[in-house]
Design a protein around this nucleic acid. Structure first.
Lengths: 158, 158
DNA sequence: CAAAATTATTTCAAGTATGAAGTTTTAAGG
DNA sequence: CCTTAAAACTTCATACTTGAAATAATTTTG
């Protein structure tokens, strides 16, 4: 089972790289698989796209609203991207931009009432879907995984 | 540490859903973070995009070449998408479509010599980057994670 | 305070991405 | 055979995404 026995502490370059590469590929495939399935279901059940739902979910967490740059940072997508998605949600009446006292560069983005209503409907189903899609992972593993994924970031983000 | 004690076998609906949702969000954030960083580095070091590199990596695994539909299935992206990316790689001389005896609908896609040379250069760096970005995860955790992520899929893919 | 730097956002070109519709070719049924 | 169905792609309209450049407002500095 053990190879050289040096693997566990092989920080001195290159040895664990193959394992990490395999892990990255699996991580990517898992997240693409889930994302594809969620996209399909959102489309067919609610005529909603994933990026729009993501923005609504972020706004739902902050009843006070968020700046465009907050959305960009939180969702890990570019500024220009957020602009387009929010524009579309505004057109659909699900979201509003309200101007802010003291800083005319920014505007705060909030869910409208109908946006909130719709979000809650979708979120209920969405949560079930995720529960189902990740159902093959035990509760214990799920928690373990979540902890690992939470902490990995701080190690290289100077 | 334990709450009710019923969590481990709570298959009867709804209970683990919140945990799974959190896990999904972390999974998505982790993979977006890594993807964003890799995209940046590929661009600045090799003027290469991630989708093109993904196609080249898939082709590298199969010296015999792959059908368009094989690429689509393996990379989990649509047919139309693969067409565009491969078109671009052909234009750049990194890949060729060669027609096939016996079935004129299909063509086999392969790396060219220069495609293979370039891929190997990039892959070396790419592997280091991934090793670095996932370096915060111990070897043991990395293996554990990889196993979990490999098997989760079969549970709902009827 | 005025100039310079910073911050927040939008605009734009280029590149992905999907899913549906269309084309060409092959396989299956009769 | 010849029609029908199926398979493998490509094309197209629409939507998302990035990163760079442009705009506008605020803050910092000399």
């Amino acid at each position: 089972m053990n190879d050289t026995g040096a693997s566990k502490t092989a920080q001195h370059a290159g040895l664990g790289h193959k394992d990490r590469l395999r892990l990255w590929i699996r991580l990517l495939r898992a997240s693409r698989t889930i994302e594809n399935e969620l996209r399909l279901r959102l489309k067919s059940a609610f005529d909603m796209t994933l990026p729009r739902f993501d923005v609504m979910a972020a706004l739902n967490r902050e009843p006070e609203g968020l700046l465009m740059s907050d959305l960009s940072r939180f969702l890990l997508v570019s500024n220009g991207n957020v602009t387009v998605i929010v524009d579309r949600l505004v057109t659909d009446g699900l979201v509003v931009r309200s101007s802010r006292e003291g800083d005319r560069r920014t505007s705060i983005v909030r869910l409208t009432d109908s946006g909130l209503t719709l979000f809650r409907q979708i979120a209920t189903e969405h949560e079930k879907w995720v529960g189902e899609l990740l159902g093959g992972i035990s509760d214990e593993d799920a928690r373990h995984l979540a902890v690992m994924l939470k902490s990995f970031r701080s190690n290289w983000e100077t």
